[in-house]
Amino acid sequence: MQSDLYAVADFCLIPMGTGESSVAEYIAECQRVLEKLGVSYKMHGYGTNLEGPWSEVSKAIHDCHAAVHAKGAQRIATDIRIGTRTDREITPGTGNEGKLKRVEDILAAERK
Rank of each mutant, 00 (worst) to 15 (best):
residue 1 M to W: 11
residue 3 S to N: 14
residue 4 D to R: 07
residue 6 Y to G: 04
residue 7 A to Y: 03
residue 7 A to K: 00
residue 8 V to A: 10
residue 10 D to G: 03
residue 10 D to S: 09
residue 13 L to P: 06
residue 14 I to M: 15
residue 14 I to H: 08
residue 16 M to F: 05
residue 20 E to R: 11
residue 21 S to W: 01
residue 21 S to R: 12
residue 22 S to V: 00
residue 23 V to G: 02
residue 28 A to L: 05
residue 29 E to A: 13
residue 29 E to K: 15
residue 30 C to R: 03
residue 32 R to V: 05
residue 32 R to D: 14
residue 32 R to G: 01
residue 33 V to R: 04
residue 34 L to Q: 10
residue 37 L to T: 04
residue 38 G to Y: 07
residue 39 V to R: 00
residue 40 S to G: 01
residue 44 H to T: 12
residue 45 G to R: 10
residue 46 Y to R: 10
residue 47 G to K: 02
residue 50 L to Y: 11
residue 50 L to K: 05
residue 51 E to H: 05
residue 52 G to Q: 06
residue 52 G to V: 02
residue 52 G to R: 03
residue 53 P to W: 06
residue 53 P to N: 08
residue 54 W to P: 00
residue 55 S to Y: 04
residue 56 E to L: 14
residue 56 E to A: 14
residue 58 S to N: 13
residue 59 K to G: 00
residue 60 A to P: 09
residue 61 I to M: 15
residue 61 I to V: 15
residue 64 C to Y: 02
residue 65 H to D: 07
residue 66 A to K: 14
residue 67 A to F: 11
residue 67 A to R: 03
residue 71 K to M: 15
residue 72 G to Y: 06
residue 74 Q to R: 14
residue 75 R to L: 08
residue 76 I to R: 06
residue 77 A to D: 06
residue 77 A to R: 06
residue 78 T to H: 08
residue 78 T to V: 10
residue 79 D to T: 10
residue 80 I to M: 08
residue 82 I to W: 04
residue 84 T to M: 09
residue 84 T to G: 10
residue 85 R to S: 03
residue 85 R to C: 06
residue 86 T to D: 12
residue 86 T to I: 07
residue 86 T to V: 08
residue 86 T to F: 11
residue 89 E to M: 05
residue 89 E to P: 00
residue 89 E to K: 11
residue 91 T to H: 12
residue 93 G to E: 02
residue 97 E to M: 05
residue 97 E to F: 05
residue 97 E to H: 07
residue 97 E to D: 12
residue 98 G to A: 02
residue 100 L to N: 07
residue 100 L to F: 12
residue 101 K to G: 01
residue 101 K to F: 01
residue 101 K to S: 08
residue 103 V to K: 12
residue 103 V to A: 13
residue 103 V to N: 07
residue 103 V to R: 13
residue 104 E to M: 10
residue 104 E to T: 04
residue 107 L to W: 08
residue 107 L to S: 00
residue 107 L to R: 14
residue 109 A to M: 09
residue 109 A to E: 15
residue 110 E to S: 09
residue 110 E to M: 13
residue 111 R to D: 11
residue 112 K to F: 07
